[in-house]
């Protein structure tokens, strides 16, 4: 299981500071009313302000794929979480680097192309992340240094409708947590 409090730690702090995001007011929802009481007027523009929540850094994290350093992505076939020979070679190189950088913790992200349904792709992304994680463990990377998360089709690298773009999106990505 991943740890949501510390994921992305230093990297995200730098990112947030550089974007000036820490300290921005977070907007909270305008109450809606249903039923016979009058509803509020038109859509979503009126909001209250409130303090920045503890979650904020994680939320901003979602906007930007985590940095993997020298760790390379692995790629999958459509609707598959099988590791190709090429993916295994990439994972071997990633495992070697992780062996030489024993303090590094990594979150393995599973991603999908956008052909398919969001929910199925979330589950498929989890399988991809898990397949990559399992293989790294068999190569000797301690399990406690690896966590997994699926982003399904939600964070594409590109949005074109062609095979080369879809292929780039069907990936396992490695995000260094430290």
């Amino acid at each position: 299981m991943h740890n949501n409090k510390f994921r992305g730690g230093w990297l995200i702090s730098v990112l947030l500071l550089s974007l000036g995001l820490i300290g921005c007011p977070k907007q909270s929802p305008q109450p809606m009313s249903y039923g016979s009481t009058p509803s509020t007027s038109s859509g979503g523009s009126e909001m209250d302000e409130s303090a920045v929540g503890e979650d904020e850094r994680i939320q901003e994290r979602v906007q930007q794929e985590g940095e993997g350093g020298p760790l390379q992505d692995v790629f999958f076939s459509y609707d598959s979480f099988e590791l190709s020979e090429e993916a295994r070679q990439t994972l071997q190189a990633n495992a070697d680097w992780l062996q030489n950088n024993a303090e590094v913790k990594v979150e393995v992200e599973g991603h999908c192309d956008d052909r398919g349904t969001a929910e199925y792709n979330l589950a498929l992304g989890a399988k991809r992340a898990r397949a990559a994680q399992d293989y790294l463990i068999t190569l000797g990377v301690p399990a406690e240094r690896l966590s997994v998360i699926s982003y399904g089709e939600e964070l594409p690298q590109c949005t074109d409708s062609n095979e080369s773009c879809w292929q780039r999106n069907r990936r396992g990505h490695f995000s260094v947590l430290r």
Partner: peptide, 11 residues
């Protein structure tokens, strides 16, 4: 109307 203001992924 937007009913979440979470600035994250919702599904």
């Amino acid at each position: 109307r937007r009913v979440t203001q979470d600035r994250t992924l919702s599904l």
